[in-house]
Design a protein around this nucleic acid. Structure first.
Length: 283
DNA sequence: AGCCAGGCCCTCC
DNA sequence: GGAGGGCCTGGC
């Protein structure tokens, strides 16, 4: 079915740009498992063509629309964050690049796995967890698994996660799974909580520090002021905002600086800085 | 072959 | 309180 949309949209950058790790591009479509469904999507003139199963498209399409945040007014947001030559260029170059609204648990595990790692490896880790511990879906001869629930990963345990190649992150994922399965932390309620409160809750989990916590807040928990500072963001800020270097701001101090500087939608600024710097020189 | 990755934790100062 | 080393493993 068609999800009608006439605003700006850059689906490829959103799905394959390092926000999420299970999207695959094949035969002109992007494929993933979301909301316990096979989901396929592609960008067309009038919006997004969408297919899913086993559930009805009419049920999943609204969820997928929210996932893509089509209601964010990117023109207005772009204006508020275009503070500086390079980010303005990136806003214009990657026009329509939106922050995803991911499923919180999968997002949390993905970014725990991101520590001292790289995108190809994170993708492998996340896909391996799904294949080994998630429940399988089958459709038209294709088999792929849902991302495992907290219970399923808690049952798997640290050793089996290590066997998949998660390394020292296995302990953190296993502990987080137990914690969420027990209900110690309710991720969905953090969507309603304040930024500060939600960040504090997340950092209470082992393996989640300021950077990873801000990724989860931004990509899954509706905190568009979140501003994860990784090596790419640090490079971009130091090169493009010399005042930060002059003030000798440490990496830790860059987050509050950026949140003040870019404002309510600092998270969007983050995404454009990230793309702009990481893809510098590539076309 | 060897370096380093989209950090975090722990220790020690 | 903050700076520095160690950590699993696999891409490149």
């Amino acid at each position: 079915m068609l999800i009608r949309f006439d605003g700006i949209l850059e689906l490829e950058g959103m799905l394959l740009g390092g926000q999420a790790f299970r999207w695959r591009f094949e035969d002109g479509w992007f494929h993933n498992v979301l909301f316990n469904n096979f989901v396929s999507a592609r960008q067309v003139d009038k919006g997004v063509e969408f297919a899913c199963g086993p559930d009805d498209e009419s049920v999943i399409a609204p969820l997928f629309r929210d996932y893509l945040r089509l209601d964010d007014d990117l023109v207005a947001i772009g204006k508020t964050i275009s503070k500086g030559e390079q980010i303005s260029a990136a806003v214009s170059k990657y026009q329509g690049l939106r922050i995803l609204r991911q499923e919180p648990w999968e997002c949390l595990v993905s970014f725990i796995c991101s520590a001292n790692s790289n995108i190809p490896r994170i993708s492998t880790n996340v896909e391996d967890m799904a294949r080994n511990f998630g429940h399988a879906l089958e459709m038209n001869g294709h088999v792929r698994s849902a991302f495992p629930t907290p219970d399923e990963l808690a049952d798997a345990g640290e050793q089996k996660l290590r066997d998949l190649g998660l390394g020292f992150r296995a302990k953190y994922v296993a502990a987080a799974a137990v914690c969420i399965a027990r209900g110690d932390v309710d991720l969905f309620s953090l969507r309603e909580a304040s930024y500060d409160e939600a960040l504090e809750e997340l950092i209470g989990l082992a393996g989640i520090g300021d950077k990873v916590g801000n990724c989860i807040l931004l990509f899954a928990l509706d905190k568009r002021q979140a501003f994860p500072v990784d090596v790419w963001i640090e490079r971009a800020i130091k090169e493009w905002y010399p005042e930060v270097v002059e003030q000798k701001l440490t990496r830790k101090a860059m987050r509050p600086w950026a949140q003040e500087f870019f404002g309510t939608y600092a998270g969007y600024a983050n995404q454009y800085l990230f793309h702009g710097r990481r893809l510098q020189g590539k076309d």
